[in-house]
């Protein structure tokens, strides 16, 4: 239990991830799938960010004070890049959805499969 509380951020990440996974797998609507994907991405980002946080740390900026703890800059870099990627993926996915809609007149995965 203490572990759960201790790592509440991880628990949150896991919950978010599962929500996203559910949306990705269970929802037929393509947009909802994309949203699910985004939620999962967010979960992973949270996990990485919180993992890189130091207790009572400051942002990893170069200051005079080199002794006080600071948050890990690399984690944040990773997440930044991850966000860029996620945005690109989402953009591409959305453009694909518009094309699917234009071609098939639907964005429901069930109907798409049936209509093929």
């Amino acid at each position: 239990m203490t572990m759960l509380l201790d790592r509440a951020d991880y628990v949150l990440a896991i919950i978010l991830f599962l929500i996203g996974l559910y949306a990705l797998v269970a929802k037929s609507n393509l947009i909802k799938k994309i949203i699910g994907l985004n939620i999962m991405e967010t979960a992973v980002f949270i996990f990485i960010i919180t993992g890189g946080l130091a207790r009572d740390g400051s942002p990893p900026l170069v200051t005079q004070d080199t002794t006080s703890p600071y948050h890990d800059p690399v984690s944040q870099t990773i997440v930044l890049v991850g966000i860029v990627v996620a945005v690109s993926v989402t953009a591409l996915a959305l453009s694909l959805v518009t094309r699917i809609h234009a071609e098939h007149g639907t964005i429901e995965a069930d109907e798409l499969r049936g209509g093929r």
Binding site: L37, E41, V44, I48, S75, L92
Partner: peptide, 25 residues
């Protein structure tokens, strides 16, 4: 549609990789 499915699976796997990278780091 094929591209979309590819994208979803691909993005999911990328996420797994990213997660793993974060953890490993």
């Amino acid at each position: 549609a094929a591209s979309f499915r590819y994208l979803v699976m691909g993005a999911f796997s990328s996420l797994l990789v990213l997660f793993s990278i974060g953890l490993l780091y």
